[in-house]
Design a protein around this nucleic acid. Structure first.
Length: 913
RNA sequence: GGGCGGAUAGCUCAGUUGGGAGAGCGCUGCCCUUACAAGGCAGAGGUCACAGGUUCGAUCCCUGUUCCGCCUACCA
């Protein structure tokens, strides 16, 4: 038999694309409802269709692939369902920017042609991220790739919208909503990011209508909104002001007077002046206060957040004030208002003030509360079951710490604004009869607005006839749905819902959702609500929430900071397996990942180490192999089988609890520091002697353990493990579809492990001695070993030839008091003694320093233990086994110390000091 | 303002029934020893943030403080 030869260093590029192609060709990732195993399904958090893979995706996807590959190998009926979402606002923004560079605009193009352009863009760039995912080795069932705007998923959206509307859970109404004046659309509450900024607090005087000499002083951070004030509020129990309630003030800069109202909710007596202006059209609190006091709402900004002439006219703003303000943005208007108030002596003071402003999560523009008719989901009835599902443990959130976060948000949830004033997305299935809604449909330029009070016909298909007037002319609601509305249906819409498909029956509820914290509310919470509502069951059993990836300094990665780590570049440079292993090993719960390239390089080295272990194995695997029962194998084989068994148990249980970091650490330690450092070294003498009687069993153990280790590692490092596995003796076509290793009690051998620890300590001591005495690495030396404990001493005899081999010398096992008295460096630890001959002209400085240090440490430790043992309370109250252990340690220490001291004296004697 | 998490070796982080403090990277010294210099061997380095409390005994449990993150919120 000829053995395949491997190159000296591992070259990821040479193997990755090759194996991925094979895996796809063989259909290993394809799921089938006929598979006999218990289903295990993950739906991918769909990335933006026009995006590209960033390191956050790489983490998220690596973890999912580890789970899926692991479960597939365990024989489960696995489905990892991939897909992308249409990312309404973001994608529309991208295409609009393209149009600008062509001198076009979406308005110039018109809705239909614009949407066509977006589809074109999706067609050209939509595969980018999918190809990058393949590069990462993701074992998705690509035949089932879904997109939120697919026909099937769109059907699901229609179905859900219409059913929720019919049940009264979707309604249209005019409310104050978050409005992005740049994207020109409504946003939901959670699409607004709050950011602390340094602002100013303006104190302004409003004169009383019937007593202009008396003034009510208010404080505001947004003086420009005063033009739309419709009341001033004071606390009803505030003795300073309560007599003013019911009176009116003249609103400066306008011809209006507005009432003073008492409002205990809005007003905090301690803050500012104790009096607050109320602008219901431009502030959420004021909007609610306005409801309480039946105040009019006077918007003074237009949809671009510019001062609106018509609005100002309606608000009675003095013409000489209004004219210069027309079409000014908020910031500029503020300066003019400030000046006007100053001119009239009404501006008392301006102070620095810390405040939070809301920004659009897509474009970072400051959002404005804006009064407009929108569609909402009445969320409370959906939230209640979603709260219960988590409370009752039907859904587990991991790590648990996020449960309260989830519950807190769900219990305080607000109605969800789902309409967006953009064109890319699922258009709302609502139509307005042109006859019946004549007065509610308003066209200004190319903007069509359907006013509050219009009567929509909600239906899965175009209505033929108005049920009220019989009219046949309709306007379809121009708005589209929030992208997250379709994402919320993802776990069942991707499986064929609303049709009752066998896939749905097999894979729903899905098993695990892997996601970042940033979309817990955007996505996870909404999937839970929709899943419970429409499937009558939770969408997934486990939600695993992983950390955010930051740069080495802990900064959030962003293109503008230039600190992004590009996963594609990393894969190119260090290999995909290295990247995947790095991310897995750093995925500790509840902590952000600070990623530095050196870490990835370290795991590239790990891959190379594995590669070379395989090269070593292949070099010696020629020749007959014999599979003896584990107990009859040689010491190194018994030991590595026992350790491998332990590693299988640990990796499996860590994966079961989503501790990817610990699973990775366990694998790393085993492969590098047990398998390579010790096992391969231990078996070299047997392998290198082709006539050795233990050869057949050693070769069998070597092949068997390496092959098993590759299977154990495969979910983490799919490419290198496949490449190596193929060169080893194996059964089957691909590691992808082999069984995951399971614990085998016949492999477990605690006695052998004990013995190995003795070997490890002894070899360590000899090697230390060699360094202390400056013995050349290649030089073979004679040395003595002995142990105070009889059993250990006997074991040293059994280990003799291993000791000699690993210590590069000849070992004589003999009680230490039988050793020659002079010219010997003795090193001692825990009853174990090693003696190395000292030749005349060696520098003993290092050795003496070491002995002195050991003695000092022994003294210190002995003193610490003595103190404890002399404490009557310790002796009286500590468990007997703890006391016994302490006493034993004191005895060992004192023996060790005595031996070290005598060695010290002997060396000193040699030096003649 | 509220909530949550973190503070352990130079750096990044493990450490689950409280009883001798760990890994990776980096650093120092010696080695191109026929799997691997992307390597081997040996080694240095830590009042486990601070102050109290519980306990015979605390990195671990409790309280408070400081600093740093994140989430959330209507303080004009």
């Amino acid at each position: 038999m000829t053995t395949p030869q491997l190159d000296k260093t591992y070259d990821p590029k040479a193997v990755e694309s090759r194996w991925y192609r094979v895996w796809i060709e063989q259909g290993y990732f394809r799921a089938s409802i006929d598979h006999p195993g218990e289903p295990y399904c993950i739906v991918i958090p769909p990335p933006n269709v026009t995006g590209s893979l960033h390191v956050g995706h790489a983490l998220n996807h690596s973890l999912q692939d580890i789970l899926i590959r692991w479960r597939r190998m365990q024989g489960r009926n696995t489905l990892w369902l991939p897909g992308t979402d249409h990312a309404g606002i973001a994608t529309q923004n991208v295409v609009e920017k393209q149009l600008i560079t062509e001198g076009l605009s979406r308005d110039a193009l018109g809705r239909e042609r614009f949407v066509e352009r977006v589809w074109q863009w999706k067609a050209t760039s939509g595969n980018t991220i999918v190809n990058q995912q393949k590069q990462l080795g993701e074992s998705c069932d690509w035949d089932r790739l879904r997109f939120t705007m697919d026909e099937g998923l769109s059907k699901a959206v229609l179905e859900v919208f219409v059913r929720l509307h019919d049940e009264g859970l979707i309604y249209r109404g005019e409310r104050l909503i978050n409005w992005c004046p740049r994207c020109l659309t409504a946003l939901s509450d959670i699409e607004v990011e709050h950011e602390d900024v340094k602002g100013k607090l303006y104190t302004i005087e409003y004169p009383l209508e019937n007593d202009p000499g008396t003034k009510l002083t208010i404080a505001t951070t947004r003086p420009e909104t005063m033009l739309g004030d419709t009341a001033v509020a004071v606390h009803p129990e505030d003795d300073r002001f309560k007599h003013l309630i019911g009176k009116r003030v003249s609103l400066p800069l306008t011809n209006r007077t507005i009432p003073i109202v008492g409002d205990a909710i809005l007003v905090d007596r301690e803050f500012g002046t104790g009096a607050v202006k109320i602008t219901p059209a431009h502030d959420f609190n004021d909007y609610e206060a306005g409801e309480r006091h039946q105040l009019p709402r006077l918007p003074i900004f237009d949809h671009q957040a510019l001062l609106d002439p018509a609005g100002m006219a309606k608000a009675g703003v003095e013409p000489n004030i209004a004219t210069p303000l027309e079409h000014l943005p908020v910031q500029k208007a503020r300066l003019k208002i400030e000046q006007a108030l100053k001119d009239r002596g009404l501006l008392m003071k301006v102070e620095d003030h810390k405040m939070a402003v809301g920004k659009c999560y897509r474009c970072k523009t400051v959002v404005e509360p804006y009064l407009s008719p929108q569609w909402f989901v009445r969320i409370q009835p959906l939230a209640d079951p979603a709260i219960k599902a988590v409370e009752e443990g039907r859904i587990r959130i991991i790590p648990e710490g996020w449960v309260n976060n989830y519950l807190g948000w769900m219990r305080d949830i607000k109605d969800w604004c789902i309409s967006r004033q953009i064109w890319w997305g699922h258009q709302i299935p609502a139509w307005y009869c042109l006859t019946c809604n004549d007065r509610q449909i308003l066209s200004v330029g190319n903007r069509t607005t359907v006013l509050q009070g219009a009567k929509p016909i909600v239906s899965k298909s175009d209505p033929a006839q108005c049920p009220i007037c019989g009219g046949r002319q309709f306007l379809r609601d121009p708005d589209v749905l929030d992208t997250w509305f379709s994402s919320a249906l993802w776990p069942f819409s991707t499986l064929g819902w609303p049709d009752r498909t066998p896939e749905l029956k097999t894979y729903y509820p899905t098993s695990t959702l892997v996601t970042g914290l940033d979309i817990l509310f955007f996505w996870v919470a909404r999937m839970i609500m929709m899943g419970l509502k429409f499937m009558g069951d939770v969408p997934f059993r486990d939600v695993y929430i992983h950390a955010l990836v930051r740069d080495a300094e802990g900064q959030k990665m962003s293109k503008s900071k230039g600190n992004v780590i590009d996963p594609l570049h990393v894969m190119e440079q260090f290999g995909t397996d290295a990247l995947r292993f790095t991310l897995a090993s750093m995925a500790s719960p509840g902590r952000d990942i600070k990623l530095a390239e050196e870490r990835i390089e370290g795991y590239r080295n790990f891959a190379n180490k594995i590669w070379n272990a395989a090269r070593f194995a292949l070099m010696y695997l020629n020749g007959p192999r014999a599979a003896l029962p584990p107990a009859q194998r040689a010491f190194p084989d018994r030991w590595i089988l026992s350790r491998l068994n332990h590693t299988i148990r640990a990796v499996t249980s860590e994966l079961e609890s989503y501790r990817f970091d610990r699973a990775a650490t366990v694998l790393y330690q085993f492969i590098w520091h047990e398998y390579c450092d010790w096992y391969l070294e231990l078996i070299k003498p047997v392998l290198q002697d082709s006539a050795h009687p233990d050869g057949p069993s050693a070769r069998q153990s070597l092949a068997e353990t390496l092959e098993t280790t590759m299977r154990l590692l495969h979910p983490f490092m799919p490419f290198i493990t496949e490449e190596i596995w193929q060169t080893l003796p194996h059964r089957g076509d691909s590691i992808v579809v082999q069984d995951y290793p399971v614990v085998d009690s016949a492999w477990s051998s605690p006695d052998t492990e004990q013995q190995f620890m003795l070997l490890e300590h002894t070899v360590g001591l000899v090697r230390t001695g060699r360094v202390l005495l400056n013995v050349a690495p290649g030089q073979r030396i004679p040395f003595y070993v002995g142990h105070d404990d009889q059993t250990r001493h006997r074991q040293l005899h059994q280990l003799q030839h291993h000791l000699a081999h690993l210590s590069r010398g000849t070992a004589e096992v003999k009680p230490s008091n039988d050793w020659p008295s002079g010219k010997l460096l003795r090193l001692v630890t825990e009853g174990l003694s090693v003696g190395i001959g000292v030749t005349g002209d060696v520098d003993l400085g290092k050795a003496l320093d070491r002995l002195a240090k050991q003695i000092a440490e022994a003294d210190k430790e002995a003193q610490r233990l003595d103190t404890k043992l002399n404490n009557a309370e310790f002796v009286a109250k500590a468990p007997p086994e703890v006391i016994a252990e302490h006493q034993e340690r004191v005895r060992t220490l004192s023996r060790d110390r005595a031996l070290l001291a005598s060695s010290q004296e002997q060396l000193r004697a040699m030096l003649g000091t």
